[in-house]
Each structure stands twice: as structure tokens, then as C-alpha cells.
Write a protein that binds this DNA or RNA. Sequence first.
DNA 1: TGTTAAACGAGACGGTACGTCACGTCTTCCG
DNA 2: CGGAAGACGTGACGTACCGTCTCGTTTAACA
Lengths: 214, 214, 214, 214
Amino acid sequence: MKAATIPIGTKRGRPRSGQTTKAILKAAAEIVIASGLAEMTIEGVAERAGVGKASIYRRWPSKGALAFDAVVDAILAAEPTPDTGSLEGDLARVAESWVRLANVRRGGRTLAHFIAEIQSDPDLAVAWRERFVDRIRRERRPIIERAIARGEIAPGSDPELIMDVLYGPLYHRYLNGHLPLDESFARRVVRMVAAAALDGAAASEPRHLLKPSS
Amino acid sequence: MKAATIPIGTKRGRPRSGQTTKAILKAAAEIVIASGLAEMTIEGVAERAGVGKASIYRRWPSKGALAFDAVVDAILAAEPTPDTGSLEGDLARVAESWVRLANVRRGGRTLAHFIAEIQSDPDLAVAWRERFVDRIRRERRPIIERAIARGEIAPGSDPELIMDVLYGPLYHRYLNGHLPLDESFARRVVRMVAAAALDGAAASEPRHLLKPSS
Amino acid sequence: MKAATIPIGTKRGRPRSGQTTKAILKAAAEIVIASGLAEMTIEGVAERAGVGKASIYRRWPSKGALAFDAVVDAILAAEPTPDTGSLEGDLARVAESWVRLANVRRGGRTLAHFIAEIQSDPDLAVAWRERFVDRIRRERRPIIERAIARGEIAPGSDPELIMDVLYGPLYHRYLNGHLPLDESFARRVVRMVAAAALDGAAASEPRHLLKPSS
Amino acid sequence: MKAATIPIGTKRGRPRSGQTTKAILKAAAEIVIASGLAEMTIEGVAERAGVGKASIYRRWPSKGALAFDAVVDAILAAEPTPDTGSLEGDLARVAESWVRLANVRRGGRTLAHFIAEIQSDPDLAVAWRERFVDRIRRERRPIIERAIARGEIAPGSDPELIMDVLYGPLYHRYLNGHLPLDESFARRVVRMVAAAALDGAAASEPRHLLKPSS
DNA sequence: TGTTAAACGAGACGGTACGTCACGTCTTCCG
DNA sequence: CGGAAGACGTGACGTACCGTCTCGTTTAACA
């Protein structure tokens, strides 16, 4: 999971050609977006990119890592963090645009395929967390901070918890497909998060209930 | 996704032997729990079960389908729906025992592997929804109904939404691993759900906010 | 039926390793000679040669083709074309040494297995004719030519016909096993061929008998 | 190789049904004649005959044995032993009609497939010799005997040798396909056999040539 | 004529081998 | 000397048949 974003210091000889790297990323991205991560093979990417397989393995340790570099930046590029003036407004924007992306015909399942892949590729999982999940959450953090400042979130609330309660339900329907993942659902989730946050229910440690001394 | 649970009516000929079916399921379950779905191969199951590959293909259309039949019942068998007398108590029980299961050393990742698998196996996805997700949600439904009766959930609330906001965050950390999935987290999620529900924020259709006429 | 003997011109990439090819041929030859063509399996050859199955399929299109390359050269290497000074002497040498080969304990049935195989493998059949039957007949041709020069075969005789009348009966007993295939039989066949040839009975077109104008 | 022709004594219960046996033989014959022995499978025959596989295995020990019973009688039924008044005439009739049969579009390769099969099925080989080769040669024997009586074959000649020198070349071209197997070839072979026989070259033991004391 | 045991169709069973695919590594040679 | 080309050993795939076996179900000869 070192490739592409990490500049590789070449002591001797010609550095890895940007041409080759770009051709590989382009081919990989096309395949993943068109057919999904499961259909992408190293051999297929090599052929489409007009490149030897070794040139891929030289750069990426696994198919997941390549796919990650190929498409994650595009996913992240999606939308700037909104600032509508209210917590619920901001969260609604975030959730609705996420839902819109997830429902895109070609490429909408890409996130799902990555989450599938990281269940059996620990190195990819690390990259996924560090370079996707954490990054997007860091970027959305100001929404929470501003809401705290405005008093829409009780002091002492846990921003991570709020993020999980926002994104979790969305991903849940996205990955399980048991019920429709639409903007109405997004809004209703947001409504619950905002209400609970205002209530002070997002405290870092909850009042003890059943297990007062766990 | 037809096998095992559906009694196959054989008019003539010898019916599929329960012995063989059981041996296959046992072998598959052992492998999946010990090493994960990705390590499970049809050939490995056949060998461990002392069975011909054809006998497996005769019963299940894909490795996911077999794995599903092999382990899902065991997962579902886990816990009865609790009745503590309060919404928050019930949800806490559900969430905490789910977290405990997810953290089991051997087998705790099984759910994750299934969710990974259904991203590229549509038949398995159908089975997953019908025979796992829907089933467990149906089973947990009384929690919501009792809470409505007790007035802990505002009338007109959407039980499905509440379920998603409960399970979603748990699965989110489980699948992405970005932050610890422990009982404290479970309780805090539950706290938020309960608070929002009491507020009436789980209404089937939210008040309109930014997009009053979308 | 292209492999091994035809140098494969590889412009780029690593050429097929001679090591691997030789190991496969050796393993195949051992199995065919020891147990017959029917016992030879691609998987068995791959295992004995310490080679992947794919490396065999990369080189030969069928089991017959591999077996052919593995053993035919050895069969052909058998004996130089004799020159005893008389037709009957030459033919006797040829026939007797053929009979001796056919009766060898281990490997004597190899020819039979090939003839069996070509009945259902058209590609192998072509190779068999071009690279075995035709080749050995071409090599033995001088026997006939010298006999014609010496006057032991009537002018206008058909060398192919003579070959068939020599080899045909030998193969007939070899393949059907209805009567012993020994050197006595070989000599008696040779005796008949030589007598008929001297008579001028091997003419390219026979006197018309029953069907004067077919 | 016991089946069909050997009436099976049934002490109790229902005897093997002639219906079933006939259906199997019919299906087998159709498949063999249409597609060759290699394409015939027990499962295919069972299906086409509307019969269980066990009913086939109950009757025949191998696929070759079944095929043999299914088609050999039809092959043998071909032609009565001719009597034209001359050796060459009789042999020509025999050879030419054999050639005609061998060239029949559908079924002409059946003999070849049997000869292929007996190379790896010893039981079938025995049946082949006893119930096909020997039988047809016994039937054609009078041709030789009459020729001896007429003085067309030198006394002391070996009828078996003559048969082999007649049939051998025909089968040789039939099985190897290196040169055309037509009536012209048949006549030329016959011409050589007749000439050699008249010469006395078909003696049971030949004059010693190169190896006077083998 | 009613009983009963065999032969029956169906097809499941444990196996073997098939030919294909993609893996990740390794080797050669071109530019 | 980097890189394309692609051969390599590996191992799982899903299929086709093998020959054996075990089911109920005919069905015809015996009692």
C-alpha cells in the first residue's frame, strides 16, 4: 500500500515511468468502475494497459491496493464539506450526496467492493482506514465542531460516535440491500442523529443502565 | 440457495442422504469458522467431509450458498429477543450481545465474510436478506412494538429506521475497523437511538428541512 | 501436433524452457512405455515431471500429441534400412526386426496404442501418418528400388502396394492377436511378397478380372 | 462378454426383460454408428434407452462388450462367402465388399473403433477374436479349400497365412489412412495374394534364407 | 389368484481426470 | 538497466462419467 501517493526514491537507474503507472491506473479504474472489483484481474489490467504483469507487481502488492489507488481519489473528490448553517442541514447534504453516489449506475457499488475486499486483505484494510475512512471523517469534522459551537450538540459529545450513527445506517442498507437506500432514508437518519445530539445522547460515556459497573 | 432447508421431493431414485449433507455442512462450518470464507474451497470441504465434489455441487450452487447453510443457523441461534422492560434496556442487550459475538476470536469475522461475499454473489445476497437480515429483524421487532406501547417511542415512528440506526453503526465499525467495537460503543449507540426515538425523530417521514419539496 | 519439433519463435518474453519440455517428455515416455497410452494421464505426467498441468497444455493440444512426441522418435530410431543384396533378405530383416520390437515386453504394445488413439483423434492421425508411417516407408523405399534395379521386382510395380502387403499382415496379427506374431510368420509373409513381386503381380493396375470396366 | 447370446437361467423372480435388453442394444448401436465408440458412454446409452445404468452393468461388463453385442452381428451379416469359380474372383469379391463396407459414411469406422478398443480391454479382445475374427475367417475358409482343390494354391499352403496377407493390407490402410482404401487397391492386393499362392509361396514353413537355423 | 422376490428406473454416491483460469514469481531480451 | 512479454509451478474451478449402491415400484412365475 505504498504506491503512487508515496514518492519512491530511486537511487540509481531510471525511475518508474509515470506513463506506465498512469496507464495501469487508468485501465484498473475503467475495469473496476465498469464491472466491479471482483471482475478485475491483474492479467486483465496488464493487457488493457499494454503492460507486463511484473510492472504491476513492482508497484502494488495486491489487486486491492492497485484498485484502491486507481479509484479512491476519484471517490473522495466528490464533494466539499457543506456549511449550511445548521447541523441537520449539513448532515443532510452529506448524507444525501453520499446516497446519490452510492446509487450511481456504473461505479456505485465500488465502495461496497472495497469493503468486501478489506475483509480478507489486511494491508488493504489499513490503507482503507487511513486513506479513506479517516480522511473523509477528518474532512467532515468541522460540521460537528461548528454544531457544538452553535449549541446544536451537547457539550461532551463524541464526534466519532455521531459520525458512526450517521454513516453506519447508510452503509448498512448499502451493503445489505434489505431496504431502499434513498434520500428519504438519508433525511430520516439525519433527523435522528440531530435530535439525539441535541438531547446530549451522544455523550462520550453514556449513563449506566443495565451494567452499572462493567 | 435452495438446499438443505428445503426438503427436496424425490419421487423416484434415492433421496439425498442426510449423512452426506451433514458431513458437508459440518466440514464447511469448521473451515469457515476456523479460517474464514475466503479460505474455504469446495475441494477442501469435499476432502474434509470425505465426499465427492459432485455431491456438493448437487446440493449447492456456489460456495457462498454452502457456507450460508453451514453457519447461518448457528449464528441466528445465538440469543432470544430480550425483554427487560425498557427500550434502552432491550436495545442494550441486543447490541452488547451482538458486539460480543462479533469479537469472538474464532468465527467473529464470519458475518463480515458473508457481507463481503454478497457484494458479488446476487443469489447469495437474496438468501442473506431473506434468511438472515429480515429474519433477525422480524425476531427483534417486538422490542420496538413494546416500546411504542410503553410510550418510549413516539407514535408514527418507523421500526425499520430504528433498526438500521441501531445495527448500522455497529456493522460500520465491525466492517471498517476504524474504531473499537466494544460494549461501551454499543451502549452509546443505544443511548442515541433511544433518545431520538423518544423525541419522535424516528418518524416515517421527517420534517422537511433543506429541500421542502424534493 | 506442432510442439517440440517445431522451434517456437518467440519474439519477446521468455521462451519455453527446454528443461521443462524435456522433463515432460521423459515422464510421458516412461509412463507410456511402462503402462500404455491408456494409463497415461496429463495429471500423472505433470506430477511425475514436477510440472504444472498448464505447462503441458501450453505445449501439446492432446494427450496423444504429447505421447507421440515422447516416444515416436525412439521407435523410429530402431534400425537402419538393411541392404543384404536380395529383396527377400532385406524384407526379412525389416519384418523380423519389426516383429522383435512388437514382442518386446515393455513397450511392444506402444504402436498398437497409437493406432488405437488415432481412430478418435484426427490431429494425432495426421501427425501419425506424416511423421511415422510415411517417414518409415520413405526410409525403406530403397529396398524396393534396389530390387527393381536387380530385376527382383517386375517393372511397373507399385512400391506402396508392396509395402502394404508386407506390413499389413504383420500389423494385422499384432493388432488382432488372433494368431502368433513370430519370426516364422514374418518370413512366410516376406516369402509371399517376394514371390508375387517377382511374378509382376504388384503392378500398379491389375489385370481386370471380374469387373473389366469398373 | 457373456451377455445376450447366453440365456441366463433365472431361478426365481422376473427374468431379464427382453424389452430392456433390446432397448439398450438399439440405443448403443445408434450411438456407435452415428458417433463412434469413443462418443458412446454408458450414461448416454442408459438415457437414450430409458433405462437405469445398473440395468446395463447387470448385462455387460464393459462399454466395449455392450458395443460389441450391439453392432457386431450387423457387421457380420454383411455378405455370404462368394463362389465365383476362381480363387482370384472369390478373393476379389471378399476384398471389394469389405472395402465398400469400410467406406460407408456412417458406421464405416466401427471396425476401427473396435480394434482400437481391444488394445486396452483384454476381455473384449477375446470376444473380438472368438466372435468376429475367427468366425469370419472360418466362414471364408472354403474359398481357400476350393482353390487348393482346383490347384490354384500350392499344396501345403497355410490358409491362415493367405487370409492374413489378404486382410492385413486392407486393414492396414483402413487403420492408418496413409493411402486410399479403394477397390483398385483391393484388386491389386488380391492379385498379389493369388500369384504368390499359385507360386507355392504360402507354404506353412518357408525355405530358409538368411537365418537357416533360427 | 394372490404372494413374493427379482429386475427395474432412477439417480445419489465417492472418485478421477478433464481442460481452463488467474495467481504471483521468474527470466529473457528489447530499446 | 527498466520494462514488456509471457513462461513458469500452483491450485481451485466446475463438468463429465466412471462403476457401485440403494431406493421404492412393477411384474411375472410360483404356490
